[in-house]
Amino acid sequence: MDPTRLITTTEAIDPVFMFIFGACLVLLLGITTAMIYFVVRYHRSRAPQPTSTSDGNLWLEIVWTAFPTLLVMAMFWYGWAGYLKLRDIPKGAMEVTATARMWTWSFSYANGRTSPKLYVPVGMPVKVKLVSQDVIHGFFLPAFRVKRDVVPGMDNFAWFVADKAGTYDLFCSQYCGTNHSAMISTVEALPEAEFAAWLGGGAGGGTAAAGLDGKKLAQEKGCLGCHSLDGSPGVGPSFKGIMGRSEVVLTKGVERSITVDKEYLRRSILEPQADVVKGFQPIMPAFGDLKKEELEALVEFLGVQK
């Protein structure tokens, strides 16, 4: 093997799994075999009376205290060494910021490009900075054995490297409310050249380009996770026919009636807790990081949902 080649997180962790599982299997088989043998051999039908009254043996106790101690210390040390590899970011890693909010992921790159999927180049280590806008989420890549909680107010990170092109699952692992299990995305590992082209942001390749598509934006920002387009009930009020609708809202705990207009929509996106529609929970995260044109595109899009 090429000694300069980067050890992937999977290659760092899997041997630890093999070691502990192997040791556990031997122990479990030993215990089970002994139990079954004793139960059969010394069953009352074969052994009407006990043939020993032994109630202990110091040497046995010493052996089966010392042996597990050595074994678990080996497991501990091996586990710790593997963990350190997860914490040690290789030099030259590409930085991506993962922003988690109920219940979507958004990945932003150094050049300002954002994406709901995590695009990475094959063979290049990626450091993912983990940012939460509301509650605790979990950044989990099963294929890479990588997991780190996304805690509001805390600078957590994870790193991994994809050594083959392909699509890998990305889950939220820390329970975060109603649509926790829908807070999934993928890692898209692309060959370097393809990745560079994607990052350059070809036409129609995402929200950094001009001529914003409101529907796509609503999808990417996760709006549609809670607000339906067809009037079906969700975690938040449906977008169907929202413009001009009369709603009863709670403003600082006081009920009042309003008619939905553009101003109300803008405010509800930037400061969702200001006016909460009656009957819904005040759980929507604020989208203060939207660009002005993104905000306008969304409001435009909402205005035409009949």
Binding site: F17, W80, Y83, K147
Partner: peptide, 25 residues
């Protein structure tokens, strides 16, 4: 004894830092 052993041994996977990261949560 048997079920507790299986539970306890799988606990070793959770106790080791490297392997816990994958199976945690």
């Amino acid at each position: 004894i048997l079920l507790f052993s299986i539970g306890g041994l799988s606990g070793l996977i959770l106790g080791a830092a490297a392997t816990d990261v994958h199976v945690h949560d």
